[in-house]
Design a protein around this nucleic acid. Structure first.
Lengths: 247, 247
DNA sequence: CCAAAAGTGTTGAAGTTACACCCATGC
DNA sequence: GCATGGGTGTAACTTCAACACTTTTGG
């Protein structure tokens, strides 16, 4: 491997991003529609691409996400490496790679990242080989390109583990929100019902949220109190290292 | 990337193994002494090496571990990918790579794996470029080759997360053991004291261990009861998905 | 009989679960 | 006035944390 130019592509390593978006109703994933090439119809895929030779993988993930969907400043956490030698071998994937990649037969290992964001704050704009970029309902996902369905599944597992194990990150919350919205968020991710009263009690006791002097307006029911995230208490909780192992 | 021969080396991807070993007293990590080359003294490192072109990464990790230390049949779990472009750039590491690798300047991303085993069941035998293979106390680890110190740290964090989050795997327990030994295991991994009575109570309630009709012999104190692991109950617990998020 | 580690119970505090009705608003 | 989702309290139960002394063995 002679020279390592900054923008020379590393043909063996890619980064893929699983961006979960929540609209306070259902959980979605940001998918791109991979451009069609001759005889290969377009197909849904995770935003992801080869990294550069001199590029940090984390940085690459952010860059690729931006290039394909326009989203930036999203905190990404690693899911892991996916390296089955057959992961690119489905027929349509092969044809697509041949049309698009310089080195279509290379064995590519991908490093997957994930995040959870408030969908309202981000409007994806497709570019590069992405024909479109949309927030798909997690429950509606059918076949995806490559091994991306498997990657989404692994990322969702990480997200669940994270949410039951530590307080949710404020980065995905809008400036103000209601406890019902937060409640729905938790229920969507965990995929089960949580008792409303107990949920509210717990959230308030942890002091991660505090109420604002503001209520919903124009809703055809009792207006709900708005809350904001308390970053200070969140950081304290994280730093002190919560610890579920009780002795 | 023309042909992909089964044993052609992939110069960009390696697998490293962090094998934690417990002797019922202290926590150790399996390290190899990387062979010395001209002007570069030998150095401690994780067992790890480049993968083959057609090889699954998980398989590669097992293979590499076996080649360097003789250990096999160890269940490995992924820690993640480490891909800082500078991770191989320390001077001694560079010199060593130049002496040993076909493609010493390649930018290599490594996928790290970890496991926890009962140290008594495994006697490492160094081979290949490993001059020796030894169980080092985690607390005694000084400088390691490449970014291996960072990898060990990340693996230890995963191990801690795992142990507080789910019942410990029986794969690391000897056939029979005492609750005090198990107690020390937990204390070593978590790095803090756990109340003896509360620990015993909890372990027994979970029914992951059951007592045998056998006691220690020849010890200069009250002999302790031996226990065995209950695999059936363990599997039940895992399958049902323990769940720490209380509502 | 001494040293060493094994083993054992209780209590108060905190957290968890389960459950049903009234409230404020727009239309 | 009705439909909609917001908001609230309590009791039974389980889990957790803290704490000190007796037991059994070898030497």
């Amino acid at each position: 491997m002679q020279s390592k130019n900054k923008h020379e592509v590393n043909p063996r390593i890619s980064a893929d991003c699983v961006i979960f978006g929540f609209d306070f109703n259902q959980l979605r994933v940001l998918l791109i529609e991979r451009s069609a090439v001759e005889n290969v119809p377009s197909m849904m895929a995770l935003p992801g691409d080869l990294i550069y030779e001199e590029e940090n993988i984390d940085t690459a993930a952010s860059r690729v996400l931006k290039e394909l969907t326009g989203l930036e400043e999203i905190y990404l956490e690693q899911v892991g490496a996916f390296g089955d030698p057959d992961r690119l071998n489905k027929k349509n994937d092969q044809l697509w790679l041949k049309a698009v990649r310089q080195d279509p037969d290379a064995r590519v290992i991908t490093i997957a990242y994930y995040s959870l964001v408030n969908l309202d704050n981000y409007s994806p704009q497709a570019s590069s080989f992405a024909k479109s970029a949309t927030w798909m309902l997690v429950d509606d996902i059918q076949e995806l390109a490559f091994d991306h369905a498997e990657i989404v599944k692994a990322a969702l597992k990480k997200l669940k583990d994270k949410i039951i194990t530590q307080p949710i990150g404020f980065n995905l919350l809008p400036e103000k929100f209601t406890l019902s919205q937060l409640h729905r968020l938790y229920e969507s991710i965990l995929g089960r019902d949580l008792d409303k009263r107990n949920f509210r009690r717990k959230m308030l006791k942890l002091k991660l949220v505090e109420s604002l002097d503001e209520k919903q307006e124009g809703v055809p029911h009792k207006p709900s109190q708005y809350f904001k995230f308390n970053e200070e208490n969140y950081n304290k909780l994280i730093e002190n290292g919560y610890d579920n192992f009780g002795f």
